[in-house]
């Protein structure tokens, strides 16, 4: 994945873990513990996330406080909605390994598989 995308994920992950609004300086300080990174880079990526609608911000004193607009679970749910075909999705944007099936059909598939295995062993 792109380095910038990685930093986006790290910033989002920290804010989700903290569960409170935080200024870019706090995020930078925490990121800096694991690897050297420029404050301006963190600030820029936080602004990118804000423009993408993933972070909201509020001014407190002189600094912006950032906070995720949605929880991690909400993002995952939205992602899975794309993948499971609940969203109308243009042809071929995502190609799923198997599509949805009825319970009886899954059972039929399983017994077919078992029968084939027995044949293979016999």
């Amino acid at each position: 994945m792109r380095p910038l995308g990685e930093l986006e994920a790290q910033i989002m992950n920290r804010l989700w873990t903290w569960g409170r609004p935080a200024p870019a300086r706090d995020i930078h300080a925490d990121l800096n513990r694991t690897r050297p990174i420029a404050y301006s880079t963190v600030k820029t990526v936080a602004e990118i996330l804000f423009r993408k609608g993933m972070l909201q911000r509020e001014k407190q004193g002189r600094a912006w406080q950032y906070e995720p607009t949605c929880s991690r679970q909400q993002y995952t749910a939205s992602l899975m909605q794309d993948a499971l075909g609940d969203n109308p999705d243009p042809a071929g944007a995502l190609l799923s390994f198997v599509e949805q099936m009825s319970a009886s059909e899954v059972e039929a598939l399983r017994s077919a598989l078992r029968a084939a295995k027995r044949r293979g062993e016999a």
Binding site: E6, E8, A9, N13, M54, L79
Partner: peptide, 11 residues
């Protein structure tokens, strides 16, 4: 979709 993946997925 990729923007969402970038924040919740683990490569």
């Amino acid at each position: 979709h990729v923007a969402l993946l970038a924040v919740v997925g683990n490569p």
